[in-house]
Design a protein around this nucleic acid. Structure first.
Lengths: 151, 151
DNA sequence: CGTACAACCTCCAGCCACTAGAGGAGCAAG
DNA sequence: CTTGCTCCTCTAGTGGCTGGAGGTTGTACG
């Protein structure tokens, strides 16, 4: 029993910041933990596992909605894992798409930086390419490489 | 003179959405354009050039602050382009960092997805790996691959 | 026992770069 | 004159936190 640890200890153990833990509770990603007499949260092993799960998932770029689903799946071990599979696959496709975009971006940025002769702005390759999209090799990046909100 | 085009036309020509153009004006990225009698904005060629510059820069992932600086440099052609150069270089470094992270993520996600035998959650590789960070090959991704806000 | 100080609590505002919606005015074509 | 489009302003919401104000609780030391 009473293996209750404080939010600070939970934070140190899981690597999730104190404020972020409270935020996760607020948005229902984490069940509201028990409290001490003095109104402090006390976490147990299960909470720590959840926090680690969340942190790892966030590290892999899943959004909180996806993680919510993943967590609920974890709690239902007899269910088919098709949904978990498809969430992960969607994430993988997203990551691949993003890599492709970023590699094109990298090429373009390198062209800009390498071409810059470090003189005055009027001859600057960086400004010049930005100003004139026609001088840009990778037209696709302007189309919809405005990559979605990250990671 | 009066080559004034409407915000809708400016949007179509530059590829920047109408609401976004108004937003750029609001945050001072674009000077407030003239208005017609009926209070409609009228844009000219210079505005269009700026919009294109901004769109291209955003496409390359520069943030609005960086773009503000880049734009002000463009207006001062006699100045040294060192600052433009360093903004672009910083962006390049960022993109390279991001690619590295994403490639590690991709590997991890592939391992999860490929390992999944499409059965029940209790044997699901996806859930299993998320739950136990020790089973993860690429430990670094949990460290700080929570990539910054993105392009 | 008092007191300093850390760690905790709640609530609210702010970040970025937009995006969406309400509610209304202007304008051209039929 | 009416329909329907574009435009206007203003406000609030998005995601995933982060930071601060202002207050309470717990602990270590003298």
């Amino acid at each position: 029993m009473h293996d209750g640890i404080s939010i600070g200890q939970a934070s140190a153990a899981s690597g999730v910041k104190v404020t972020t833990i409270r935020y996760y509770e607020q948005v229902g990603l984490l069940a509201a933990p028990e409290r001490t007499e003095g109104n402090r949260r006390t976490f147990d092993e299960r909470d720590l596992d959840r926090l680690t799960f969340i942190r790892h998932s966030r590290g892999l770029g899943f959004d909180l909605d996806g993680i919510r689903t993943l967590l609920s799946l974890q709690d239902a071990p007899k269910q088919s894992c098709a949904e978990a599979d498809s969430i992960a696959k969607a994430r993988l496709a997203d990551v691949e798409q993003r890599i492709t975009s970023l590699v094109a971006l990298k090429a373009e940025l390198e062209r800009m930086v390498v071409g810059c002769s470090h003189g005055r702005v009027e001859n600057c390759r960086v400004i010049e390419i930005l100003a004139d999209h026609g001088k840009c090799r990778h037209h696709q990046h302007a189309e919809q490489v405005l990559l979605p909100p990250s990671p």
